[in-house]
Structure formats: C-alpha cells, structure tokens
Design a protein around this nucleic acid. Structure first.
Length: 243
DNA sequence: GTCCGGGATC
DNA sequence: GATCCCGGAC
C-alpha cells in the first residue's frame, strides 16, 4: 500500500470515527480565542473531566482576556486551585497582561508570537493555531504521538525514533487542508478514548487494516507465562516489558 | 501503597 | 533530565 493512500484512508476514517465517537466538550462550542487558550492551558497535564468544571468557573469569573488581565495574580491562582501545576495560572495571567500591553488585547495568531509567551510550548501553539485560528497547523502531544506511532511506525520504528521531529512532520503531513480543527480534535479524542495507552480498542478499530501495530498486545495484558512464574524464570525477570 | 501519565521550563 | 501536581490504574 502506498504511503499517500494510507494517509488518505487514515484521514477519512478518523473524521468518520470522530463524527460518531467524538466527545462533546465545552471548549468546542466557542470560537473565542481567549476561551480556547484557557482550555488549552488547563488541559496541559490535566484530564478533561477535571478541567470541565474549572473551565466554566474560570470563564465566569474572567469572561474576557481584559478581565483576566485586570485581576490580581494572587486571586487568579486561588481561582485555579486545585487544578495543580500552579505555575500555569501565573503564565496564563502573564499572557493576558502581555496581550493587552503589546497586542492591543488580541491574541496573536502567528506561531512565533505565541511561542514567545511563557506557558505556551510546541503543543499549545499548534492547538491555538488550529483550534482558535483555524490554521492548518499540526499538533503533537502524547495522545497524538501514541496514535501516529502505532498506526504509521509500529513498535520497531517507534523504538528507533530519536527525537520528535519525525512525528511532528508526520502530524503536519496528515492535516487535511482546511480541516485542521476537526482533524486535530479527532486525533485527540481517538488517542484519549480509543487508541489508549492501556487496552486500546484494536478489534473494532477503523485503522486496523493498515495499522503498523495491529493487533496490539500490551505486556501486562499477557497471560503470565510459566517461564515467568517458575523459580528459574523469576530470578531473571526485571519487571514488565520482557521480550 | 506504588506507579503511570502528562506539557512546559530551566 | 529533573521538576511541577493530581487522579486513576494496578
């Protein structure tokens, strides 16, 4: 199968999967860049279920970037509690103030300016470009890394991977022009709810015909082999992941 | 009780 | 690579 063909099938199948299985999340109902920024900062290292109520509370208290910029940072930290990683509200507040001071209150929509803010790294920049500004930008977080690694590379080439550039390039090559928003949201949902770290749903997976990791069996879902349980075996076992 | 997962910073 | 925080899996 040619690479371009796999790419198109992946795009098409992912978007079809998303129409049926995509999550209904509050930050997908808005076009307001500031609201999307708040959601993305909250979603760094924090699960969706914990973010949802705090996202609503935060936006009620600070409905606009200007309102957030006016607030004392100490109060913003209190509002943030108990989401954790408490440098994040400080960064978010700094982004709001800097945007008011340097960008006339409008979040910049180019990557370089976004990355210049503390608290916006490679992932969040891509998320803002595609989700808030509807640009054809790639994203790469651990969900996406896992999905693309499994489907396009397989375990061998994944292991051989050094940095992340190859996966960024792959993510970029996959974005269907004009559909980055839906496609990237779909990638996130697929990684979070389907192609999960543990017990991925391989059997009903729409990608299994061309997935480089199908069928995936995790080390800890194996039936314990007699070798591992025997006295001779036990002495040589070093935790999970034996090959 | 311990381990795993998860972006950005330094 | 260490650090930040916490929920959930085991």
């Amino acid at each position: 199968m040619r690479a371009g063909s796999v790419r198109r099938r992946f795009q098409q199948r992912l978007l079809t999967w998303y129409r049926r299985h995509g999550r209904d999340l509050p930050w997908r109902k808005t076009r307001d860049a500031y609201s999307i920024l708040v959601s993305e900062i909250m979603l760094q290292q924090t699960q969706v279920e914990r973010v949802i109520p705090k996202y609503r509370e935060f936006l009620k208290r600070y409905p606009t970037l200007e309102a957030l910029a006016r607030a004392p940072v100490k109060e913003v930290r209190r509002t943030w509690y108990p989401l954790g990683y408490n440098i994040r509200p400080v960064h978010l507040h700094g982004i709001a103030r800097e945007t008011v001071a340097r960008y006339n209150g409008r979040l910049p929509s180019d990557e370089k300016a976004l990355r210049s803010f503390k608290g916006i790294g490679p992932y969040t920049a891509g998320a803002l470009l595609s989700f808030a500004f509807k640009k054809d930008a790639p994203i790469l977080d651990t969900n996406v890394r896992r999905v693309l690694g499994r489907v396009f590379l397989g375990p061998r080439r994944m292991k051989a991977l050094r940095g992340q550039k190859a996966l960024w390039d792959l993510s970029a090559a996959l974005v269907p022009p004009g559909k980055a928003y839906d496609f990237n949201q779909a990638l996130m949902d697929f990684g979070a709810t389907w192609c999960t770290p543990r017990q991925p749903r391989c059997l009903p997976c729409p990608m299994k015909a061309f997935c480089q990791s199908y069928p995936l069996t995790l080390p800890n879902s194996d039936v314990p082999s007699p070798l591992l349980l025997s006295p001779a075996g036990r002495g040589r076992v070093r935790g999970r992941g034996q090959r």
